[in-house]
Design a protein around this nucleic acid. Structure first.
Lengths: 232, 232
DNA sequence: GATTATCATTGACTTAAGTCAATCACCTGA
DNA sequence: TCAGGTGATTGACTTAAGTCAATGATAATC
């Protein structure tokens, strides 16, 4: 636990997408109910089925939200970094967390307890609208993920991900995979062996060049086609 | 277009899960901006990529929300019935509709235009919280769907759906499939041929008995196991 | 800096589920 | 009533992707 009236925390919260545009006074109230907590790499933040008494913001580090099948296969739903909120579902819909959360790196999180937070939302329409925008955005992402899992094959999902990284990193045709290949496989709904083969295949077909975690896009149009059609 | 000060519309809106607990006055404002529109069976309500200038409530009938791949395979995201809202994502997150909507039956819908509605939300914290609850619930559903598509095989998804129908219909071990088998296949992320084979398989294994669209659960525990483990 | 773990890649094989095609059973409307 | 469309089922076959296993390559840790 940390000094909650910390000016820097107030400032940081105000720069977060969830809380931009909020009045100074509300930000201070928010800061007053916030707790900063630390998690070591690989530490569990919450598990599926845990009661949700509040939600989190990533202050530093990286967090993975995922589900796991009885025989151990993992599906990653999100990778969250600084500024991103997570674990809101049980705050508003009641019930427990629908998935697991672990820290991928040593991380510092801001925890916001449910009841205090709800009171703040009720008193602050701008905050409510920001939250509605965030959840709607999340729904849009999930829609895309369902589309990908159900209607596209692994090469198509991989192509879409490479294009996404290329756009996000804005470094022309050069991009870095931001996850281990095992984790990337889990994000794309496949396994490392298949991912490895598909990366090789994209290279063999002349769409990309691979150097470890560095990828160069050689045929962007080909990648776009693959991402849209979903298969070779 | 219809008389918007219609008392019955105000009453109906107030019984909707989205608007329960709202003050009479706000309900009347809501009713004032609402338009009732009719769609024939199979009519398109909106398509992926259309700008979203508002969202809908199902008043009567049934609506399917779905995505479609370039080669025509369909994945159903939701089937909505009376009282359910849909098409909210672009209202709060901006941009266009992420999926398609068509009427499965002749339907009457209530359309709520974006800008007027946002103003109402900003003035009405209870409404904002109801909306947050609805979107969070939707996220929970999507999480389950991603889990099913990625981590469970078709028989497991089918078993989960049968258990869901059995609970919803509350008629003991007897249940009705509420969709054509083609549509059910699309909801479960498969095709009619596979669904047909898997239904036969569940019957052959002694878990269910099939009589057309009527299903009797014979071995509920077996179905639960199958739904949880995700495969035979 | 040596020693474990963990991660990545490749090959051989299996399997769940999709494709293609044929048949049957319907409704529904002309 | 009959013809034509739609939906359901079954069989034979194909295929995308998973499993299992072996080997190398890193990277973390004492």
């Amino acid at each position: 636990m940390i000094d909650n009236t910390d000016k820097s925390l107030v400032k940081w919260l105000g720069e977060t997408s969830l809380f931009v545009g909020m009045e100074e006074q509300h930000l201070r109230e928010l800061s007053g109910i916030a707790m900063v907590v630390s998690y070591k790499r690989r530490a569990t933040i919450f598990s599926e089925g845990d009661p949700g008494n509040g939600f989190y913001l990533v202050k530093e580090g990286k967090v993975k939200i995922f589900m796991i099948s009885p025989d151990g296969k993992e599906q990653i739903l999100h990778i969250f970094g600084p500024g991103d909120p997570f674990g809101e579902v049980p705050v508003f819909a009641g019930q427990s967390f629908p998935a697991h959360a672990v820290a991928l790196e040593n991380s510092r999180l801001v925890f916001l307890p449910r009841d205090d937070f709800i009171a703040l939302v009720a008193a602050n329409p701008a905050l409510a609208l920001n939250l509605l925008a965030a959840l709607s955005q999340r729904l849009r992402q999930f829609t895309k993920m369902i589309d990908a899992l159900s209607l596209k094959e692994v090469p198509g999902r991989l192509a879409a991900h490479l294009l996404y990284l290329s756009e996000k990193q804005a470094a022309g045709d050069h991009l870095q995979l931001e996850l281990s290949k095992t984790q990337l496989a889990s994000l794309l709904g496949t396994i490392p062996e298949t991912l490895s083969r598909m990366l090789s295949k994209l290279q063999r077909e002349g769409l990309i060049v691979i150097e470890g975690a560095s990828i160069s896009i050689v045929d962007r149009e080909g990648l776009v086609d693959l991402a849209e059609i979903g298969k070779f």
